[in-house]
Amino acid sequence: MTFPIEAIVFLFLLATALAVTHLRDLFAAAMVFGVFSLLSAGLFTLMDAVDVAFTEAAVGAGISTVLILSTLALTDPREHQQPVRFAPVAVVLLVGAALVYGTLDMPYYGDPTAPIHKHVAPEYIEGAMTDFGIPNIVTNVLASYRGYDTLGETTVVLTATVGVMLLLGGLGGARHRGDAEVVEAAGDEEPTPMDRVQVARVSTTVLAPLIMLFGLYVQFHGDFGPGGGFQAGVIFASALILHGIVFGLSSLKRVVSPRFLEIGLAAGVLIYAGTGVASLFRDGTFLDYAVLDHHSAQHGRHLGILLVEAGVGITVTCAMVLIFFFFAGRRAAKSEEPGDRDRRVA
């Protein structure tokens, strides 16, 4: 099959990207950007990067749209016309040309002699079945071979969320609980426009539990199919955020309190690092899961990956919902100002 599907999807991607830069109405740009996300997930799938596509799907379909729109509600939804300055354009063109020149030396797509396939990849691919007995190599690499990196990434999620909390909750110092109360108060004041949309309420009641169930499936099936802690966390958070969108922030606050989420955010990283410490106590190295089970190294590795992925999932869920809390809480506080919707529609 030599039909160039990838090339066509890539052309669509290019057209969409150009359109996003061209559009002045940022709400319209956000819609077209949603198409961009769909296309890139499709492209990842076509290029066999299913786990990456899975992440793009989970994040791009729901949460990134929610966050972009929350940002738009906080700021001006229209891009201001700025005079074209030539120095930045020249820099961008130069860097772009350099990058394109750099790709000329890169190995072809799917080339088996590419350096990346020579170094450690064969070891990982061999080890996936013999050491782990887990079909999804990506999960192995993320959670075990590259366990340190993933611990770092999870910590980055934690740090970034704390940064968002500090920025949007005000830089009022260490009173986190005070910040949470600000969000709660704003949530109470927020009018819930979806109250009047019975259809959305009923369908959310049906769908949100199904999304959560699917999130759990992705969490615990990540060893065998595409998925894992990051994706599951995002999917699980999508269900909670969907509830928050339709029933209002105050209702979501009754489901999961910001305090609970803050604890969960840190607890996930603690579970991850704690698994590493537990393996230290069993005379292994940090994050060496093989020692976690007395009888079988393979079982120990299964257990370790399960725990680590659970930690990632908890942290990502709490991070996403907390960020939503802070963005939407801000929006509710600002909602007194009437929006200029006419320009947006036109």
Binding site: A41, I63, A73, F214, S238, L242, R341
Partner: peptide, 25 residues
């Protein structure tokens, strides 16, 4: 599985968009 994610999670995005539109209203 990937198609299932979209079928489920896309709904959250759509609802967010429509809330944004109605919220301004």
């Amino acid at each position: 599985d990937l198609a299932l994610v979209y079928a489920l999670v896309n709904f959250a995005g759509t609802v967010a968009v429509l809330k944004y539109v109605r919220f301004q209203d």
